[in-house]
Write a protein that binds this DNA or RNA. Structure first.
Lengths: 157, 157
DNA sequence: CAGTGAAATGTAATATTATAACAATGCTTC
DNA sequence: GAAGCATTGTTATAATATTACATTTCACTG
């Protein structure tokens, strides 16, 4: 099911560096990135495409665990910022820079299915300003832009 | 289940004007706001709080329709912009200005449960700029800021 | 290094959200 | 009023998520 990623993108290495970063962060925070959690993170990182909890479950065969196993692992990884949730897809993506504090804002390509995190200062500022001017104390944000990515657009394809 | 809305907010009148606007728009577009669709819209507009499809279903008793009835009505209302979907809650809110073209951006209070649409030019610009600079052709956006609204914050409570 | 309590995992059952497939009805146009 | 299409009705089931409780593992303490 994994298909072409941009040739310029060394997926293998970004995945392992994300894993290493997560390991280091877990150690420094005194939380346990257990084998199960590690495995789930690995599975999610293996795809730049959001994966549903049940997709992860399938990848965990032949262990054939029950849903709570995966949901709990994902909850842990979410809490640690090692994965993000894509609300519009009921799915999860690995975070490739868990060490850098950032908001969870995404471009989601409806053609190739890839999710790209965006870290855009003006956007962050605009969100903060909008909330502040409404007297709103932000707890959580969902910012997901769906469309066609540059790789999938005729102009650059 | 409906509890205090701000005293300054004439909910009854904003709901009926939203309904009238939807009726007029449907007529002008040549689409049919059938009794069922009208009723579903009314139900959703009756709450400023996002309602799940099954909440709407319950309100439709004693007709006791099956889920597809409600999902189809909601799909129609979404397509016409008479309601918006809140992805982070799997829920729907009525749109109070369906005639004015706008994006669907929300503040969601986790205390009182209310959803407020925000129409913030800098935010719209920042989103557009972020997408454009990534060469991304936007089809759809989910922007939902969850937190505590000004009415629910100690300072203004 | 055994005992204890907390954290993590395992398991069963079920709740919640959403859709597929097809039948029946109603509306529109000729 | 028959044809064709949109809408609604019905059944069944798929997909997503959680509750409750049992068991195991881990980390600490004595």
């Amino acid at each position: 099911m994994k298909n072409a990623l941009p040739r310029t993108h060394d997926h293998q290495s970004c995945r392992s560096s994300a894993l290493e970063a997560a390991e280091a962060l877990a150690a420094s925070r005194g939380v346990r990135l257990t084998p199960l959690r590690h495995r789930v993170l690995e599975i999610v990182l293996e795809s730049h495409r959001p994966m549903g909890a049940y997709d992860v479950l399938k990848e965990l065969s032949p262990e054939r665990p029950q849903p709570p196993i995966v949901y709990r692992a994902l909850d842990f990884l979410l809490a640690q910022g090692f994965v993000h949730r894509i609300d519009s897809l009921n799915a999860y993506v690995g975070c490739f820079s868990p060490a850098r504090p950032h908001r969870s804002h995404f471009l989601l390509c409806t053609r190739c299915g890839r999710a790209a995190e965006i870290d855009d200062d003006p956007l962050v500022t605009a969100l903060d300003d909008a909330a502040r001017s409404a007297g709103f104390a932000v707890q959580r944000e969902t910012v997901e832009i769906s469309g066609i990515c540059s790789e999938c657009r005729p102009s650059s394809n």
